[in-house]
Amino acid sequence: MSIFEVLLVYKSGLSSGLLVTLQMCLFIWSIGLLLGVLIGFGSVHCKRLGRGVEYLSFLNSGVPVIVLLFWVHYPLQEMLQFTIQPFYTAIFTLAFVNVLGVAEVVKNSILDIPKQYLEVARVSGISAYKRFLRIDLPLIFRHSVAPILMLQVNMLHMTLFASLIGVEDLFRVVQRINAIIYKPVEAYTALVFFYIAISIPLCLAARLLKARYACDFSEK
């Protein structure tokens, strides 16, 4: 059975898996971007929050996502005496990872703005509000947009782990297909088509935005 035959024969199963993966991504991306940006800004102004994010990011970088997912799915739920569906567990865990990642990128982008740009605004008599809108925000956007988009591509790839706690995502569907046809190369290569289809627009957007808005800090 060739790759295209896999795609053709199992198209309905693959479509439902794709739908679950996309739903997960939409939640993970939107929660991550919304909370991550807010926490990123907050952590610059509130030192306690900043330190908290730093500690959590440090811990998070030492714990593989799959382990985190298992912790949240099994011991945590048992400890707290409640059960949530694997789909939501995966969203919660991966969104948490995404929030931390986005917050770090935003925070670093803010801290990387040369303070002299802001001093020039000050001695020019520009109000804090106008400075934020016209100088801070565009510089932060230019600095953070490409890494944030690349992080979202990584989050898409991390949704693969959700299958390990029983989420019926694209990867789990392909695992099932492989169990039937015993053609792992063809089955998993078919999976690649879907991931490429989702991540290519993101990667292209990241490249395009980087080229369009790449920060010129040559005057630093």
């Binding site: 040369p114 002299q116 740009y117 001093e119 020039v120 100088i135 565009p138 510089l139 230019r142 808005y213 920060c215 010129d216 800090f217 040559s218 005057e219 630093k220």
Partner: peptide, 9 residues
């Protein structure tokens, strides 16, 4: 300033 710091965007 010496290094001017024109806003690059």
């Amino acid at each position: 300033f010496q290094q001017l710091f024109l806003w690059p965007h």
